[in-house]
Amino acid sequence: MAERVDRITPTFWGLFTLGGFIAAFLLPVLIMMNSLAYPLRVVPWGAVQYAPALGWMRGDPVVFLLGRSAAWLAPWLPKLFLVLVIGGALFHGLHRFKYVLYDAGLHGAKKVLDPVMYGIAAVGTAAGVFLAFSFP
């Protein structure tokens, strides 16, 4: 019954778990504030437009909290936050969705599903890194 030990799955299971925590802790509040706060009139129209959004990417909201000595961190934090959320959500969700597809009958397709799913997650995360860090 000797079978080869699977080293790939535990690695992606680790990312799935990490992403699961990130999504569980951060996604609801992000969806609430980023997608529904304005329609629910929690924030005014002025707060969701281009200029404040760009300012957010620059770290404007956190700069006051950091103090002078740590102010250089401010532009990094929002970008890191976005990369964490996007990467976490992708590696979590696509791993789980892979098992949904297995269960739906694609059980024999492991060889195809693994590279496709984790490939999408990796490319999406890379796109997130590229986009986020292309802002000043």
Partner: peptide, 14 residues
């Protein structure tokens, strides 16, 4: 398990 679809969808929306 289907929550994964929506979690992934929001990542792409971001």
């Amino acid at each position: 398990e289907l929550t994964s679809v929506f979690v992934v969808a929001y990542a792409f929306l971001l």
